[in-house]
């Protein structure tokens, strides 16, 4: 399922990232804090999706090569997501803060590179099959 294309996004050269107050990126006080936010062009929230720690994510078959606006970290996520992986696992493997990974996952979702499965809401945890599956799974360890 591809989201509608944004023509402006397509034509925008990669080296002039968009929504980006430069003053924020050049905060000399920030030290090592800068890098994760550079990866997200200073964005703190994903454009789409909530991305709970246990939301499961998988890459879907769109070739990201030449896609404008994807950084090396986006591509690293796509490589890891060849098999189903939780947001928490992605942050662990990439050694990046959760917030950063969330923003990049939002980008990838926007561009149709990934699909995701949100966890069951707590209010809906009344399905006996879930408990049974968990108990059987634990027993089988």
């Amino acid at each position: 399922m591809m989201p509608p294309e944004d023509p402006e996004r397509e034509t925008r050269p990669p080296e002039t990232p968009a929504e980006l107050p430069h003053d924020r990126l050049l905060d000399e006080q920030a030290g090592p804090m800068v890098r994760p936010y550079v990866m997200t062009s200073g964005r703190l929230e994903p454009t789409r999706g909530k991305f709970d720690l246990i939301t499961l994510v998988v890459a879907i078959g769109v070739n990201p090569e030449g896609e404008v606006g994807l950084g090396p970290e986006h591509l690293a996520i796509l490589r890891l997501c060849q098999s189903v992986m939780s947001v928490a696992e992605l942050t662990g493997h990439l050694n990046l803060p959760v917030a950063t990974v969330r923003v990049m996952l939002g980008d990838l979702l926007d561009k149709g590179f990934i699909t995701m499965q949100e966890p069951e809401p707590e209010a809906d945890m009344h399905d006996i099959r879930l408990y049974k599956a968990v108990i059987d799974g634990l027993r089988a360890l």
Binding site: I54, L56, T115, P119, E120
Partner: peptide, 21 residues
């Protein structure tokens, strides 16, 4: 069970749902 629309991977398999303890 009330759950969101289930997503599928490239091979059409339904993605599992994660639970946590």
């Amino acid at each position: 069970m009330v759950s969101g629309p289930s997503s599928r991977d490239m091979n059409g398999r339904k993605l599992p749902t994660a639970v946590k303890i």
